[in-house]
């Protein structure tokens, strides 16, 4: 797509699908809503997943995602290059989550329907749903930065380099966070991890 077309706003909504993030950002900076809608459709699911994980499944995740995109709409020039867009959105969403839960620490988390009891239940039926809730719960107990590193690399499948760039830390620091996160999870799962694995093996058979 040519710069001239972007500047003149001549592009129809269907053509934005083929446009690069850079073109979309340029058009969005000129308040082109169709271009911005395409940007939203490309990135909102990832930003929502990350926010959801950082909010530990709280319903605020959707508000946070919307707020992050609103900030992009209001300040599109803050993203200097299209390659940095996802990282910028992740940082904004992360800061919004931190701000929200710093203001109202954990009380909302306890009310969230999605949060599972982190304590292992003796004799509970360990189906996949139970294991999923238990894993969500232990991940939620990790420190914020470890949780974010794990989310970006494990759940969003970002490379260590991309995740480190998004978190604005060195790759070594990211690897350290990942290692501590994994060790923390293993420690929390020391009591019931093996039984969950056994249940998985039984289900597989």
């Amino acid at each position: 797509m040519t710069d001239v077309a972007v500047q003149k706003g001549e592009t129809s909504s269907s053509n934005w699908c083929a446009a690069s993030d850079a073109d979309l950002l340029t058009a969005a900076a000129k308040q082109n809503q169709q271009a911005f809608a395409e940007l939203v459709s490309r990135h909102y699911q990832a930003i929502h997943r990350i926010s959801w994980r950082l909010c530990a499944g709280h319903v605020d995740a959707e508000d946070v995602t919307q707020e992050a995109f609103l900030r992009l709409w209001n300040n599109p020039n803050q993203v200097r290059e299209a390659g940095a867009l996802k990282g910028w959105l992740i940082r904004v969403a992360t800061n919004l989550v931190m701000d929200r839960f710093r203001k109202k620490p954990m009380q909302d988390l306890e009310q969230a329907a999605e949060i599972a009891d982190p304590a292992p239940h003796a004799g509970a039926v360990m189906d996949q749903n139970f294991i999923a809730k238990r894993m969500d719960a232990v991940i939620a107990l990790l420190p914020d930065r470890q949780k974010l590193a794990l989310t970006l690399v494990h759940f969003e499948h970002m490379t260590n380099i991309a995740a480190a760039a998004a978190m604005e830390i060195s790759v070594d620091a990211l690897e350290s966070l990942l290692a501590r996160a994994r060790r923390g999870l293993k420690l929390m799962l020391a009591q019931d991890g093996q039984s969950m694995l056994a249940a998985l093996s039984t289900e597989g058979e």
């Binding site: 929502h48 959801w52 959707e62 996949q128 294991i131 809730k133 894993m135 994994r182 999870l185 998985l200």
Partner: peptide, 13 residues
């Protein structure tokens, strides 16, 4: 650990 992490919830918007 990776086997268990793979079962964690994938939230849908």
């Amino acid at each position: 650990l990776d086997r268990l992490l793979a079962l964690a919830t994938t939230p849908a918007v």
